[in-house]
Design a protein around this nucleic acid. Sequence first.
DNA 1: TCCGCTATTATGACTAGGTCCTAATAGTAA
DNA 2: TTACTATTAGGACCTAGTCATAATAGCGGA
Lengths: 186, 186
Amino acid sequence: MKLKKKQRQEKLQEMIEETPFITDEELSNKFGVSIQTIRLDRLELSIPELRERIKHVAHKNWNEEVRALPIDEVIGEVVNLELDNLAISILDIKEEHVFSRNQIARGHHLFAQANSLAVAVINDELALTANVKIKFTRPVKVGERVVAKASVVGDDHNRTIVEVKSYVHDEVVFEGKFYMYRTTEN
Amino acid sequence: MKLKKKQRQEKLQEMIEETPFITDEELSNKFGVSIQTIRLDRLELSIPELRERIKHVAHKNWNEEVRALPIDEVIGEVVNLELDNLAISILDIKEEHVFSRNQIARGHHLFAQANSLAVAVINDELALTANVKIKFTRPVKVGERVVAKASVVGDDHNRTIVEVKSYVHDEVVFEGKFYMYRTTEN
DNA sequence: TCCGCTATTATGACTAGGTCCTAATAGTAA
DNA sequence: TTACTATTAGGACCTAGTCATAATAGCGGA
């Protein structure tokens, strides 16, 4: 049996919220009613037309897209890389890295920079972080440039040890000792 | 003097990349050429029409919106929070969290979940991570759901200690001991 | 059974922001 | 002047709608 108006409109509202990229025509097929009925429903529920919905989604995310964190690959810009030896990367702390309240960088960004650098410096197909000991020695503020230096310092029970120190100018802001698992011990 | 074709096309490409929400008409005004010229330019540069561009931006972010690394606030969804006591959050591991080669989650995502949870559980204006010891006990693969449990276990020299354990089902995948700095010792 | 009411469907005119195709005109270099 | 590219113009068509008007369907109550 066909749905009554009220139920159809409720369903319609849900569906459009879930998948805003749906045309009136597709909706009319799904509900087995005419396009006009769908349009009337949208009118009554004040749901804008497809193009406006798309525009809305696009705009909403347009701001966010620019600051989108390249959580892929290495965090920060690698400026030097000698496999199985040392690596250096730079991360400029921007608005999106900090707590809005106090402009201090969230710890996981510094960690992400260090960790991805530790992964990158390992000359192997597979490198995974096993254990880490880290220290945040002083808060980093927005606008500061963090230079992370990773160096492979040795091995320990099947783990390669990478030490990472991050600096703002000459001040150490982060220290970490990464015990990395790798597929083939060189 | 009017720009030559080549220069105009370069500018055009830039402009559309910067602000994709621009119509041919607006472009034609900016460059002082006819709409048809703009259309020809787009054709030659294979730049899609406005609606397609909007759709693209919307779609691109539609995925991201849901999976959005909400690098703001807490990473993962908080399902339980008792300030200064314990907190639980859930993070579903998706494509964007893993190394494409082996589908294993990058460590910094697990760290980010744990770290932000440790920050969140602290009932204070300012909470910063000072030191951490962490262990990644087994790789997490795409599709798995990581449940992080943070508990405040005590104090140590002006630092609040928060232990975080993350699970996939009943298996521990991550363990961390966070020494948190806070403004006012309760 | 007919009346009244809501719900639904149909129809036509119009819109933005295009596409695609054809054709005319402008500008410039050999 | 010729040849060529660049630009402009025009018309038909498209999608996914809007808005207004009108016709029809379904159903409950007297």
